[in-house]
Design a binder for these strands. Structure first.
Length: 325
DNA sequence: AACGCAATAT
DNA sequence: CATATTGCGT
């Protein structure tokens, strides 16, 4: 059943593009709360990664003063977030002890405001999957994954939640290597309680093999300096994303990728890989500036007002590609 | 503290 | 429905 993961990995390695393609991509999943909290100043993102040279030969100096993550679109960049909710409790009681891990003395709604639901788009999910595949089962824990993904605004909880489902998905997949695949949901004669949850998203992309049984961090380019987990991978294409606040509409309706995985066997198509950027250390400084790494990455934010959608106004923060993946 | 998982909430 | 949140054991 499981036996050709090795080849998958090999191919992957072989296909590593030349260093010219090296390009840390970091996305910014805008964090409304944070954005507002720090009043974000035009900072030329620090980009600690020593990424250099652009695609060509000259060093394009990206002195771009990328405008803050502010939303140039609507709302003045102010997310309506949840309309109301008097849950603004702990303001007077200045927590005498532990409390705010983030931000300092500058009060923040960030702590009390809810953030919009994250929408796991296929692209975002891919990033997740790549990170997981890359780390190997042992290291693929929420925190690490989150760091590798380096998506601004992504929280450990987001990842943990997703990971939980992803695991169920994988488990289920392995269980049913020969049965129906994605059609025989409900009863697989096993006794396994099939969760109607998890599936579509996970099947939208080339699901990695059945998960690498091999452990350890992949021995790829490690940074000699840090020697950390900051894997330097390559990205041939970058994601251009759009942050959007919706009511409750899923982009693309759900599936459009290949559900090769559902078959039990993945297709051995060419695997392009993403790039894991430097982990987001306990950033003492708000680096939520816009990132426009390398070239053409810029974010377009869009907000859609919630009008009677039969749902009241449930808002989601979704990132979706404006290009291709 | 961070994790994993089931149950539950939204 | 897809995510988030919570509770509890590790």
């Amino acid at each position: 059943m499981i036996e050709e993961d090795a080849s998958w990995f090999s191919k992957w390695e072989e296909q590593l593009p030349s260093p010219d393609d090296l390009m840390p991509i970091s996305q910014s999943l805008i964090t409304p709360d944070l954005a507002l909290a720090f009043d974000i100043k035009p900072q030329t993102f620090p980009s600690p990664s020593q990424n250099h040279h652009g695609p060509g030969h000259g060093h394009l100096r990206r002195d771009v003063q990328v405008p803050p993550i502010r939303v140039p679109s609507l709302n003045n960049g102010i997310f309506p977030l949840y309309s109301h909710n008097s849950s603004e409790f702990p303001d007077s009681s200045d927590l005498g002890g532990s409390g705010t891990p983030r931000s300092g003395p500058s009060d923040e709604p960030a702590r009390t405001l809810k953030r919009p639901r994250l929408v796991w788009t296929p692209q975002l999910h891919k990033r997740f999957v790549d990170a997981v595949a890359h780390l190997g089962i042992k290291n693929a824990v929420p925190k690490t994954i989150m760091q590798l993904m380096s998506v601004d605004g992504l929280t450990r909880e987001n990842v943990a939640s997703h990971l939980q489902k992803y695991r169920l998905y994988l488990k289920r997949m392995q269980g049913l290597s020969s049965s129906g695949g994605k059609g025989a949901l409900g009863i697989n004669g096993g006794g396994m309680v099939v969760d109607p949850t998890t599936d579509h998203l996970f099947a939208t992309g080339p699901v990695p093999p059945h998960f690498l049984p091999f452990a350890s961090v992949t021995p790829m380019h490690q940074h000699p300096e840090t020697g950390g987990v900051e894997a330097v991978v390559h990205s041939q294409m970058q994601m251009q994303m759009q942050v959007q606040m919706n009511n409750c509409r899923q982009v693309g309706g759900g599936h459009f990728g290949s559900d090769a995985a559902a078959n039990g066997q993945y297709e051995n198509r060419q695997r392009r890989h993403f790039l894991g950027r430097e982990a987001q250390q306990p950033a003492p400084h708000h680096s939520i500036g816009g990132l426009r790494i390398g070239g053409i990455q810029h974010f377009v934010e869009d907000l859609e007002p919630a009008d009677g959608n039969g749902d009241g106004n449930r808002k989601i923060l979704t990132l979706f590609p404006t290009g291709d993946d």
